[in-house]
């Protein structure tokens, strides 16, 4: 049973590497679905495993055993092991919960600020133009969906590049990418290993929108140039440089530009990586569900409702 509880906690550690490969080999839209789905399921399983561990530990304590109407002692591994594990799990759950609440507050505040900004802007069709010297553009989900863009960004790009930008943001909105981003955020706070996956999901969403924009504009090179020039302009307007260490392939923006400049690839060996993702997630789901069912059965036995 301990193994069953450990599996859902350990399996998320495999996801970052699998997710990067999935984005490499699958089409961006498929990778987005697959990786975000796996991340949410793995996050859910790890939270369930922590919950089961806490419950087991609590029922070992006489007070909670009485509350749970246990007539027999709960049959588990030694209490020396179960109780500290339960305490650690409770701590981990508390940290997750706190991080989730904090993140939800941040996101809501950012979202409200963005909506307020869009309300004060001039709008035509689905685009809001904000008169600002900072180059910026983003998709603002809501009713109706809006593409928000600053005047500085519009001046940076030429006509076809502006169309690429609009097509990119519209693809985000039509694809409901904000749900995927929210799922990535949720998963990142449920398990530390899933934090690294958040970046991959974001990149997958951007790549999917880039491909949609390239298809809509009909020119990959124009789309690549739009992304590159927009990023350089946005960077010029920022005062502080981020302190992140870049990877060998560069950050997400250079990767997107390189992918657009390259010919669209036929997905290769995608089936293997997809199978691995599904297997990893299924294993985690089965392990946590079995552990939960097992604890449930033991509690029933301890309550005298079932025979061991």
């Amino acid at each position: 049973m301990t193994v069953l509880l450990l599996l859902p906690l350990l399996l998320p550690c495999a996801l970052p590497a699998l997710a990067r490969r999935a984005l490499d080999r699958l089409t961006p839209a498929v990778a987005l679905w697959a990786v975000a789905g796996c991340a949410v399921l793995l996050a859910g399983c790890s939270v369930l495993a922590l919950g089961v561990s806490v419950l087991t530990g609590l029922l070992k304590l006489p007070l909670f055993a009485a509350l749970g109407e246990l007539v027999l002692p709960l049959r588990t591994a030694s209490a020396v092991f179960v109780v500290p594990a339960a305490a650690a799990s409770a701590g981990a759950l508390a940290v997750c919960g706190w991080a989730l609440v904090r993140s939800a507050r941040h996101q809501t505040r950012a979202f409200r600020a963005a909506r307020a900004e869009a309300r004060g802007a001039t709008a035509a069709g689905d685009v809001c133009v904000v008169d600002s010297p900072r180059a910026d553009a983003y998709a603002l989900p809501g009713r109706p969906h809006r593409v928000v863009v600053t005047t500085a960004m519009l001046r940076t790009l030429d006509g076809p590049e502006r169309e690429a930008l609009f097509a990119h943001e519209r693809a985000h909105l039509q694809g409901g990418h904000h749900y995927f981003l929210a799922a990535a955020e949720l998963a990142a706070h449920c398990h530390p290993a899933l934090r690294a996956v958040r970046g991959t999901i974001r990149l997958a969403a951007e790549r999917a929108a880039d491909e949609a924009a390239a298809a809509s504009v009909g020119d990959r090179r124009t789309t690549a140039r739009a992304v590159a020039r927009a990023a350089l302009a946005a960077q010029a307007a920022r005062s502080a440089r981020p302190g992140v260490a870049p990877g060998a392939a560069g950050g997400p923006v250079p990767q997107r530009v390189q992918a657009l400049l390259a010919a669209p690839r036929a997905p290769r060996a995608g089936r293997a990586i997809a199978t691995l993702l599904v297997a990893c997630t299924a294993l985690s789901c089965i392990a946590s569900a079995t552990a939960a069912a097992d604890v449930h059965h033991r509690v029933e036995v301890a309550q005298g409702d079932e025979n061991p």
Partner: peptide, 15 residues
């Protein structure tokens, strides 16, 4: 830039 899908992310000097 989590829930708001921004067109471009921050760049490192290398980027």
């Amino acid at each position: 830039e989590t829930v708001l899908a921004r067109f471009v992310a921050q760049l490192s000097p290398d980027d």
